[in-house]
Design a protein around this nucleic acid. Structure first.
Lengths: 255, 255
DNA sequence: TCTGCCGCTTGATCTAAGTCAAGGTCAGGA
DNA sequence: TCCTGACCTTGACTTAGATCAAGCGGCAGA
C-alpha cells in the first residue's frame, strides 16, 4: 500500500507550564524571519512564541476578522484562498516551512489562510508580536523582506495564470513544489538520485491554484506521466524522472 | 477632435541649484508613503527628493540591475511587467499617483517598471533612501504598509486572472482604474455626474494585464459599449454610463 | 496634400480547456 | 465484510477565447 512520505510527528501540544518550544529551536531556523536577528530580538520572540498543531482544513487566519496570532510554518503547508460570491475560488499562495503567516498592523488580510495538510506552527500572539516589531527594527526589516518574497511569488504566479498553457502550469507547479520541499521531510531522493515529494493539495485545490479545472489537472498529470517525465505513487506522491524534460515543459521560470 | 483628459504640465526639470520640489509639496501628500511621517522623517526625505519627468515607454527600474533610485508616482501611470523567454508578457501591476516604485534592500526586483503614460515622479537616490529608512522606523513602517497594499492588489488580480471571464476581467479593470483615478486630473465628472477617465494602457497592454488577447479586449469593450454601460471617446477615454450594470458585470470585487 | 504606419476593430475559423457524465479506487464506519 | 462517500480518472462534447486575416482611421513625416 502506498503512503505519503511526510507524516506529522505525533507529539502532544505543549502544556502552558512546560518550557516552550520556539522558532529558535525549530528546523527552519536561519530561513524564517528569525534569520539574522539580534539575540535580544530572538529572545523577545522566544518569550511569546507558542507551538501549535493544526489538522488539514483548519482555518489559520480568516480574511474577515482581526487575527489573534501570527505564525511561522514549521511543517506541512498552508493555502491562501480568495473566493468569489458565486463560489469560484482561487488559491493565491501556498506556504511552506519557514514562511510567515499574517499581516501585522493590518485590520484584516486580503485572503483566507487555511492548513492544506496537517501542520505545525510557531505562533505569536498578535498584540505582543506587534509590540515587539515596534521595538525592534530588525524584526520589522525581516517582515519587509518576507513581504518582498511574497510579492515576487505573486508576480510569478500572475505570469503563470495569465500567460501559460495548462501543461506549463502543471510543470511549473511541480518545479515550484519540488524547490520549496527540498530539505524537508516531505521530500526525499531515491537511490538513483531522483527527487520525490508530496503534493500538499488535492486535485481540486490544485485546479484552484492553477486556474484550471480538476479534470484538466488530472489530464495534464497523466500526460507528463505517460511521457516518462514524472511518476505518481498513489495520488499525492510525485517522483521527477526527467528533470530536463520537466524544465522544458515549464518553459523556464521557477528554476 | 477628441483629446485625452490628462496632460502632463510642461514645466521644466528643476535645475540642481533651485529649491527642489518634493513629495512634501505634491498632490499626493497624505496618501503616499509620506503620510503619517514625523516632520523629521519628512524633512529627511525632502532633502534627498528630486523631481523627474518621464515619457511613456521609458524604463523606470529594470528587473536586471540594481535600481539607482526609488520613487513615488506624482502623475501618470507605470506598469510592472514580466516576460517569458518566448515573448509572452504579463503586466503584474499598474501604479498610480501616490504609489511607491522599487524595493529597497533587494538587489533586483522581480519585474520591470516602465512608464505607461508620460509621468512625473518624486525620486530618491537608492543609497540615501536606504540610509534614511534604516534611521527612521516610521518610513520603514510606511514601506511595509505599501507592501501589504501591493500584495492585496496582486492577490485580487490572481483571482481575476485565474477565475474570471473576459467580460468580468474588462469590467473589473474599469472599476479598478476608475477608483484609482478618482481625484486625479485624468478623471472628471460630467454635468450629469458621470465618471470619465483615461485608460493608461493600449489595447495590447490591456490584454497583457488581463491575460487576454487584444482582439478579445476590443470585443469586450464593444460589448459593454453596445449595452450602454460605457461610452468610448476616442480609444483611451472611457465614460461610465451605468455604474450599476458595470458592477454587475464585474461580479462584485474591486468595489 | 499625400503616404505609410501604428493601433484598433471586425469577421471567420480553430482549438485548448471547460462541461457533463460515467466509472474507478480507497479509507473508514456499520 | 460490505457500504458509503470523497477523491480521482477517463471519455464525449461544447464553448470561450485564441488565431488568422482583412480593413479602417488618424497622425507624423515627406
Amino acid at each position: 500500500m502506498k503512503r505519503p512520505i511526510s507524516q506529522v510527528h505525533d507529539f502532544p501540544d505543549q502544556p502552558a507550564s512546560a518550557p516552550r518550544r520556539t522558532c529558535d529551536s525549530c528546523v527552519v531556523r536561519g530561513k524564517a524571519i528569525c534569520a539574522g536577528l539580534q539575540s535580544e530580538e530572538l529572545s523577545g520572540l522566544n518569550q511569546i512564541a507558542r507551538h501549535r498543531r493544526l489538522k488539514a482544513g483548519q482555518k489559520i487566519i480568516s480574511d474577515q476578522d482581526l487575527p489573534d496570532y501570527f505564525a511561522i510554518v514549521l511543517s506541512g503547508s498552508a493555502k491562501l484562498t480568495k473566493v468569489l460570491p458565486d463560489g469560484r475560488q482561487q488559491i493565491v499562495g501556498l506556504l511552506f516551512p519557514s514562511d510567515f503567516v499574517g499581516w501585522p498592523f493590518e485590520s484584516h488580510g486580503s485572503s483566507h489562510a487555511e492548513a492544506a495538510t496537517d501542520m505545525q506552527l510557531c505562533s505569536f500572539p498578535a498584540a505582543a508580536f506587534e509590540r515587539l516589531v515596534k521595538q525592534h527594527s530588525g524584526i520589522q526589516h525581516q517582515l519587509f523582506r518576507n513581504a518582498f518574497t511574497q510579492i515576487e511569488a505573486a508576480q510569478d504566479w500572475m505570469l503563470l495564470l495569465g500567460r501559460m498553457t495548462a501543461r506549463e502550469k502543471v510543470a511549473n507547479l511541480f518545479v515550484m513544489i519540488a524547490r520549496r520541499s527540498r530539505g524537508l521531510d516531505s521530500c526525499e531522493f531515491d537511490s538513483s538520485g531522483r527527487e520525490r515529494f508530496d503534493l500538499p493539495l488535492s486535485r481540486s485545490d490544485t485546479a484552484d491554484f492553477l486556474g484550471l479545472t480538476l479534470e484538466t489537472v488530472s489530464r495534464q498529470f497523466r500526460a507528463l506521466k505517460s511521457e516518462g517525465i514524472i511518476r505518481l505513487d498513489g495520488t499525492r506522491t510525485v517522483t521527477i524522472l526527467d528533470p530536463i524534460k520537466l524544465a522544458a515543459a515549464a518553459t523556464s521560470p521557477f528554476i
